[in-house]
Write a protein that binds this DNA or RNA. Sequence first.
DNA 1: TATTGTCATCTGTGATCACATATGTCAAAG
DNA 2: CTTTGACATATGTGATCACAGATGACAATA
Lengths: 236, 236
Amino acid sequence: MSHAEPGLAEKVARVSRVTLSEVVYRDIRELILAGQVAPGEKFTLRGMAEAVGTSPMPVREAVGRLSAEGALEILPNRAIRVPIMTRERFAELTIIRAEMEGLAAEYAARNAGAEEIAAACGFHEEFAAESAKADPDGAAALRLNKDLHFAVYRAAHMPNLLQIIDGLWLQVGPVINLDLRASGRRLKEVEAHKHHARLIAALKAGDGASARQALADDIRAAASFILATGDLPSAP
Amino acid sequence: MSHAEPGLAEKVARVSRVTLSEVVYRDIRELILAGQVAPGEKFTLRGMAEAVGTSPMPVREAVGRLSAEGALEILPNRAIRVPIMTRERFAELTIIRAEMEGLAAEYAARNAGAEEIAAACGFHEEFAAESAKADPDGAAALRLNKDLHFAVYRAAHMPNLLQIIDGLWLQVGPVINLDLRASGRRLKEVEAHKHHARLIAALKAGDGASARQALADDIRAAASFILATGDLPSAP
DNA sequence: TATTGTCATCTGTGATCACATATGTCAAAG
DNA sequence: CTTTGACATATGTGATCACAGATGACAATA
C-alpha cells in the first residue's frame, strides 16, 4: 500500500470491522452492568443466540470472555448463570476496589491534566445537583456517579489498571443496581457528594494521598450501606 | 446412572472430565508463564490446533480467554500474538503488582493459619539455600520464588484477589523468565531472600504493614533490575 | 532495480452438524 | 401421596464446512 494517499481509501480501510462476538459481548456486558439480569439467573447459548439473531457461535465466545472476567459463571453442570453475590464476596471485592480505585485516584492527582480535572468536576456538580433534589432520579445519579469515577480513573493514565477496575465494576454491577431499586435514596444517605467533593479538591491540589483517602471512603460508605440494608446471602 | 455397567473407571472418567478447551487453555498458559514463547511471537488457530492434536475449536476458546486476560493480544489484522512488553507497561504493572500483592501479604499476616505460614517458610528456606549456592539453578530458584509468593497469597483467603494476581503474573511472566536467561544471577543480586525473610518474619508476627512493605520492596527491587538491565522497548 | 498488479494460499469468523450428558416429564410401583 | 424408573428433550462441547479479508510469491512493467 502506498503511503501517498491518506485520503478516502485509508479511512475506509481503517473502518475496523467489528465482529459479531464483540457485539454480543458488549450487549451482555451492558445487560449485566445495568442490572437488567438478576444474580443467579441462568441462560443458554441457543436461547441468547436466538435473542440476538445469530448462531450460537458468537455467544459462545462472548460467554467465554465474560466468564473469564468473572461476570458470568459456569457451573459444574456446565450451565451458565450470573454469579450470586454473597456477603463474603462483596466484602472482599470492596477491599480490593478501595485499594485499586484508590490507587488510580492517587495517580490521577499526580498525572491528570487540567481538562481532565474539569471534566470530572463537571460530573461532580451534575451529581451533586441531582442528589440535592427532593426526589432524585436514581438511575441518572448512578450514571453520573459512574461517569465521575471513570473520569478520574482515566486521568491516571494507567490503561492496565483501568481494565482491572472495569472488571471489578462488572462484578459488583448487578448488586449496585439491584440495591438502588430497593432503596432509591442510597446515594443521598451515604453522602456520596461529600466524598466526591473531597476527591475533586484533592485532584485540584495534586494531593494524591487525600484523593486516595476520599475515594476509598466513598467506596466503603456505599458498601457498608449495601451490606447493612441489602439482602445478600451469607454463603461462603 | 442408569447405564448397565457404571464401573469404577467410568465414574472416575466422568468425574474428572475436563473440556478440551480447558486443557488447551492451561497448556498455552504454561507456555507463556514458563517464558517458552517470546513476546511478539505470532501463532495461528490451526497451527496450534495441529500442535495439540485437536480441531481449531478448543484453541479458539482458549485464545479468547487468554486475550481477555491480557496474556495474548489480537491485532487489528486479527492476528494473534504474545503481547510485547514495553518499559511503560512493565512500570505500570509493577505499580499495580506492588499494591495488589502487598495487599494480599497484609491480609495473609492477619488471616494465615500456622500451617500456611510453615509452608511459606519452607519455600523460603529452600529458596535461600538455592540462592546461596555458588552456581544457583535459576529455573529452580524462580519456581521456588513463585511457590513462596503464591503460598502467601493463598494464605490471605481472598479468592478474587488471588485470581487478579494470577492474571498479573501471566502478563509479566514472559519478561521475568526471558530476563532470567539473560542474567542468571538476578535473584541473588537483588537480594530477594532478604526481602523474603522480612516477609516471613512479619507473617509470623502478624504484622500486616511490615508484610506489605517487604513484599512491595521485593517486587520493586526485581522490577528495577529488569528495567535497568533488560532490553525492553520504549514504545508507549 | 524498484514498483505494481495478479493470483494462489492462509487465517479468523460464523454457521451447521454430531454426540454425550443433563434436565424435565410422566406413568407405575411402593 | 411419594418415589423411582424410563423416555423425550434440551444443552454444552467439539468437528467440519463456507466465506471474506489478509498475506505472500512472483511475474510484468517502468
